[in-house]
Design a protein around this nucleic acid. Sequence first.
DNA 1: CGTTAATTTGACCAAATGGTCAGGAATTAG
DNA 2: CTAATTCCTGACCATTTGGTCAAATTAACG
Lengths: 212, 212
Amino acid sequence: MNPRAGQTKKRTRIQALNEAKILEAALDIFATFGFRGTTIDQIAQKAEMSKPNLLYYFRRKEDIYISVLERTLETWLTPLTELNPEGDPIEEIGKYTSLKLQMSENDPTASRLFANEILHGAPMIEHVLKGSLKSLVDEKAVVIQKWIDDGKLTDVDPYHLIFMIWASTQHYADFKIQMRAILGEEVDQPDYFEKAGKTISTIFFEGLKPRA
Amino acid sequence: MNPRAGQTKKRTRIQALNEAKILEAALDIFATFGFRGTTIDQIAQKAEMSKPNLLYYFRRKEDIYISVLERTLETWLTPLTELNPEGDPIEEIGKYTSLKLQMSENDPTASRLFANEILHGAPMIEHVLKGSLKSLVDEKAVVIQKWIDDGKLTDVDPYHLIFMIWASTQHYADFKIQMRAILGEEVDQPDYFEKAGKTISTIFFEGLKPRA
DNA sequence: CGTTAATTTGACCAAATGGTCAGGAATTAG
DNA sequence: CTAATTCCTGACCATTTGGTCAAATTAACG
């Protein structure tokens, strides 16, 4: 029986294996070439199977793309979840920023996949952005505002602060090619991201105006 | 004679007009759909001419794309050029940041065009990134380092500072759809970018740690 | 082992798309 | 006004690509 039909039947061993292979391959290709820039053949080749066989597991190209997006989204939202209202503001924001930067270092494809999707108008995940993402951000914005009201943080707009954290950290995944063009192979050294983290946190916490 | 041939002949009136129409239309389409996601038909339709006629002015799709990129690049590099070594550091960086943010507001397509190109590996403009962009950034990094050595700025890595300015400001063009999903139509109000600018400059200059 | 269900594939199709071309229409130069 | 040149178009082509299908192969199960 065709695995795409009713999901009442349990997944077989081969099915689980091949679906995993496909999604892994697809993440890489989609992140590099975008949805339209990716061909099913490319994914099939990278997943080491024939195109018809791949289409046996995912009936349409779009199905693969959506699966990859959904799978990655979860990982993507987790760090913000962990922003702890009870913790020390500076420490919490520091942890969050550093976690996001780590993700740009270790899993840049995920970041690029989203950047692509959003640049193209987020046709597939608009509902997620307006749903779980919005809820989560709204919730954390309240937390940050409370910290500000308590005088523990400089007065800034919580939403724009979150955007700025995303921007600064994801930039290291999405625009790495530009950075490499400017700085050369240094960007591939292990201490590059360390330096990035230091700069980002210094600016976020201390600011550019020298403190007395 | 075909306008694509030797450029010795001067451009005719119609030629100039139609080339402009094509490039304007192409910027929009390329910025939204990327190179591979864009079809010649789309551009032709937006430019209000037939596909063969469009191809009369630009022999290949790639030619249009490169023209659009080159044309936009110039505008793109200008603001950094104006960072004045003699000026006050805080003021200069403030002006630069605010200029970049304004560009994200008034001409988001340009930003998205580059984001797309870089995300996809910058196949067409790698030489520019490694050439004029790198030179310019190297030059300005020296200026910033001098300011730091003079004790006029907190000690941060100049390159990463520049990256962070790019990230924070361009984010408002490239990820506007995400922002709209979270904040709603507010992002299209005139005071939205004002608030963004305020947040960005507060963080850059003051930092999140409250000053005594 | 034998039967049933799951998996894989080569061959194939239709639509989309980048690009060509011969010739007709409009414009410009003299 | 006329000839040369530029501009424009419909028809067309080759390739790419998403997707189908019948049939062969392999794995699972009793």
